[in-house]
Write a protein that binds this DNA or RNA. Sequence first.
DNA 1: GCCTCTTAGTGCGTTATCGCACTAATGAGG
DNA 2: CCTCATTAGTGCGATAACGCACTAAGAGGC
Lengths: 245, 245
Amino acid sequence: MPLDAKQNNLRRNFLLASLPDIEFERVQTHLKPISLKLGQVLYESGDKMDYVYFPTTSIISLLYVMENGATAEIGVVGNDGVLGIALFMGGDTTPNRAVIQSAGEAFKMSAKDLMAEFTLGGVFHNLLLRYTQTLITQISQTAVCNRLHSVEQQLCRWLLLSHDRLNSDTLVMTHDLISNMLGVRREGVTMAARKLAARKLIKNVRGSITILDRSGLEKAVCECYEVVNNEYNRLLGRGISRTYG
Amino acid sequence: MPLDAKQNNLRRNFLLASLPDIEFERVQTHLKPISLKLGQVLYESGDKMDYVYFPTTSIISLLYVMENGATAEIGVVGNDGVLGIALFMGGDTTPNRAVIQSAGEAFKMSAKDLMAEFTLGGVFHNLLLRYTQTLITQISQTAVCNRLHSVEQQLCRWLLLSHDRLNSDTLVMTHDLISNMLGVRREGVTMAARKLAARKLIKNVRGSITILDRSGLEKAVCECYEVVNNEYNRLLGRGISRTYG
DNA sequence: GCCTCTTAGTGCGTTATCGCACTAATGAGG
DNA sequence: CCTCATTAGTGCGATAACGCACTAAGAGGC
């Protein structure tokens, strides 16, 4: 990849884009582009983390896997952040599975290089911590939403979170996969999706969902979505959401 | 408070107890003892955080409050940790309400003093980040548990988490308060508590719950409880749990 | 164009939890 | 000792989600 193109792509990750020039120059030499395929597992629970990943066009889902095989998503990482926070937080293994929810590009950085830069304590250090705080908010809101809201509302939230991190209005994703993320029945997703489709908010075709009416979805979603966005904007100073950006 | 007694008490908070002597000496001069009453609110959502709190015998619940007034607990902080992580993570306000779940003692430290020490980047810095990682695990597991487990299992988890952070086997707590924490109906807590009482795991009297059979509770609880403990032990090297410690 | 696999939709009985209205027990204060 | 506020327990219909077995509809390979 020519250097100009690489730098251009790097800037598509908001965290990298927020670095001052001096740190950006230093950091970018350690970043290697990587293509991520749908369903690919970057970390398995308990894995030692050799790399962290800065997505640009891919989306990564953080999943918890129960002993009985049931799964539930606790958060999602796209061009708004970085996968692998446990590394600089001082756990050297990850407690969750990280799986590609939407194929695309990312940049990876070795654990060693990341820690070297983190330890310098500059903007990079503070940026990663602020991002971690927004991720905590996202996980917290997932907990609340799981407790208090309906599958339909949660599907709205999930669609909006994904849409925010995507260039396209179409999510390549089966109901079955979504049900694994939300930790509900596949039929439950089908039902909720059909209701949203009946209201012309989405189009529901085999293997993909297309957002038709983004602002309609925002009216249907629970407050959890906006809470997470507001916190992100407050701490990282730019909109991930297409609406609040 | 005489200095010896104060130092002795300080060590009852595991985070403070883990500091090497040099840092402990420096940190302890900034810590002031404070008594916390049941129901007292330390932070309201959106508040600027003037202090962080290191509980010794008190327990603090992190609650999210919905627009309609419904609440759900996302985590709990006792002598295992510190309240106010958002401060050093770079948000200067807190996204949750923090309310005293069990009356007792704590030490508080001003935001300014905390940040001064944190910025030095020593053991204190790393310890706070590692603790934050364990709190993330706790919140994540709350999300998963809310999604996949029954009220009865969650009550077990909640009782064990509280018991771990307490000197006593008796929790002064009404079903109504517990229902606010768990984000379920008060009657749901009553039913679950009665079932546990029928199995002689707890004793259920007006305004308090007494743990009768701790190991029985551990058999009844979902895996979520152990996951959080294991991660805590792994990262902070000592047991909060009375079993795994 | 047909076969086959994947994905989506349907039907139905079961279960957990909810919402609400109510009664019963407890214990602190006068 | 009695009263009253707080806390706990009951009953019941409503609802959301589940588990499971099944059918129906695309979409790619031969």
